[in-house]
Design a protein around this nucleic acid. Structure first.
Lengths: 143, 143
DNA sequence: TCAATATGTCACTATTTAGTGACATGAACG
DNA sequence: CGTTCATGTCACTAAATAGTGACATATTGA
């Protein structure tokens, strides 16, 4: 399993709100599987275990066995890791992307409060040709 | 659409590696849909548009129309927002969770490097009873 | 040993999502 | 006009995922 796949497992695991809730429950301290089942009334035990499996695969939950008990521990490291990586990966580009964004955008009500202002410089693109033929062209920066 | 649902849209949108790649491509600056189709050789145009729709729903991509062209802009705000919120939401618990974790864990090779050390204090849990009956019990902290 | 309990596994259905081709719309431009 | 091309929409199939009940395993303690 390469790094990118592991990365993807974490994203996939975090994509589900039920699993994020499970992580929430474990944030205060480890719980047994049965504890979690009791806590999440809408889910059957098998379902909880399946979600836990996904979290374990992503290394977001680590288990410790004690007799017939299984204690589930939250491992927060991959979360911070993925956030750090994703944000830092884009942090420079983000500043410019925010710049590109403003000026002329169909500003939605929510977007309006979330977007900064600066310049917009589209990339010049389009090399290969698939079924959709295309030619070089350059849009106005500030119509 | 409540805040939690919007939150979920962002997670769901980011869960797919193709969509993360699309965001990567837009990080350098806006691209038209056709540009993106040309860039992602393995995807058909309809597929690219569907992924873009998901990103637009999550407000991760904002579009600007210019004649018959559609320019897709990355909006990095929700990413930072979700990372900030998720991390800060757990930041205190995380320190303690990391504490809970070490001591006695079936340390996997990858986990070993990602986990800190301190104390482990399981929660006392288990209230309701579903099909799985359960009684109160408390595991050893450090076996 | 035997019964209760916690967890593990299997087989299956239902829902969602990915992915595609065909056709529709609408601006650009001769 | 009418053609070209970027984009939009629809209908459909295939694959992945959520979710469940039934049964299996294994530990605990009377």
């Amino acid at each position: 399993m390469n790094e990118r796949d592991k990365h993807d497992l974490v994203w996939k695991a975090l994509a589900d709100s039920t699993r994020r809730d499970l992580l929430d429950a474990l944030a205060a301290g480890p719980l047994s599987t049965g504890d979690l089942v009791a806590k999440f009334d809408s889910l059957c035990r098998t379902n909880v275990m399946k979600h836990l499996d996904v979290l374990v695969q992503a290394n977001l939950v680590v288990i410790r066995r004690e007799g017939r008990m299984r204690w589930n521990y939250l491992n927060p490291v991959p979360i911070q890791r993925i956030c750090d990586r994703w944000v830092s990966k884009h942090v420079k580009k983000m500043a410019s992307a925010l710049g590109h964004l403003k000026d002329h955008i169909e500003v939605s009500s929510t977007t309006a409060q979330q977007v900064d202002k600066s310049s917009a410089k589209p990339q010049t693109q389009r090399a290969k040709q698939k079924q959709t033929k295309a030619r070089k062209r350059k849009p106005q920066n500030t119509p």
